[in-house]
Design a binder for these strands. Sequence first.
DNA 1: ATTCGTCTGTACTCCAACGCACATATAGGG
DNA 2: CCCTATATGTGCGTTGGAGTACAGACGAAT
Lengths: 235, 235
Amino acid sequence: MSQPTLEPEGNRLLAMLPGEESARLRPHLEHVNLKLGEVIYESGGQQSYIYFPTTAIISLLYMMENGASAEMGVAGNEGVVGIALFMGGDTVPNRAVVQSAGAARKMKTKMLQDEFARGGTFQRLLLRYTQALMTQMSQTAVCNRLHTVEQQLCRWLLLSRDRLNSDELVMTQELIANMLGVRREGVTNAAGRLQENGLISYVRGRITILDRHGLEATVCECYRVVKDEYDRLLN
Amino acid sequence: MSQPTLEPEGNRLLAMLPGEESARLRPHLEHVNLKLGEVIYESGGQQSYIYFPTTAIISLLYMMENGASAEMGVAGNEGVVGIALFMGGDTVPNRAVVQSAGAARKMKTKMLQDEFARGGTFQRLLLRYTQALMTQMSQTAVCNRLHTVEQQLCRWLLLSRDRLNSDELVMTQELIANMLGVRREGVTNAAGRLQENGLISYVRGRITILDRHGLEATVCECYRVVKDEYDRLLN
DNA sequence: ATTCGTCTGTACTCCAACGCACATATAGGG
DNA sequence: CCCTATATGTGCGTTGGAGTACAGACGAAT
């Protein structure tokens, strides 16, 4: 387990801020540890903080009326959770859940909005990040429509891997199934095939990525599209 | 066929602008007629205009490498096409296609960006619209994962209906299938059932909505979530 | 070491949607 | 009025995933 980064710069958006803006924001960034499964935002709820993950990973989920769920996007140290707060809507009809325990910085909504309204680099970065997130969401829609559970599992593993410092994910198949909006048995099957092929190994809630290139060869194009767009927009 | 609105105010975003901003933008809005099937933006391509539909409807599609396609969102007179131009990314990995022929206003990218940077009502409206569109995209992802073709067809018909002045849609089952990312036969079956139940009628590329309430009773919750979010954010 | 809770594996049936093949129906031009 | 292109209807077999049920496997705590 790598040591959690305690500096705001553990978040790549914050790290890209120029000196002046960074100096202004830094005193308002509070450190927070997020536990696996913790719900940061509830659908439609009031949000008093925006979160900049450093080592944590946050899933954006939609909860169906019948209790089923599906992930629409994921955010790690490359991004921010609470987009609605600067987009002007205050809330979104999503739930934000900690998918991988770790640290984040949080900032009061008011401070965020004031700084956003200044229209500087901070605003520019947040908007570019939002566009990247939109690509992820829309590609999730495409992937849900057209690809197999196995391909989607690969996409999910790679997206998670890119947001961690480690090849080891703490995550049961049951939880992955909830994220992907499929049956747990479907994940068991797909994961079993990936393990047979030597791409991953797992035991009781602990998945290890053994062959990243192999995963990239198995995944659908959706992963690449999203990754390229993040690389393009967030530099 | 209703007469196309020729004033910029045929677009609801433009209509919400206060006098000063409206007066500044109005001279830079050019009228344009869009034909069915016309491609406004190509994936990753340069975009010299942003479009404000008045009577046209535009689909945002992702094109797979193998030629399959799926719709990730739709925009009509409530919105704008070309979000990337003010979000800072310049392009998106999507194609924008005219789903229903009609009119739009277009504005040069430079003018758009200058006005956006002023940070007034225009910026506020565009950002709120973007958030609504994100809800549509993410709900499309959920719907693709969890709901039947028939439910999705209802959602698609209602979203289209809400962006038209008419209960009659000019649209073949083949094209709807491309939008939804399903087989043409699947649309034939679903549409056949809806027709049996008296909700719609159609002949050769001409669909008439007979019972809007019936459609709303058949559709999944996704439609309502999206519609409520648009209503909430764009007033 | 035993126990118990949790996680994973497997074996069914069922069904929606797919892929393919082809039949039928309609509009519009010659 | 007929012909042809286009749009829609239908009937297969196949399949991926859903739903259900239960068996095994692991790990932490007593």
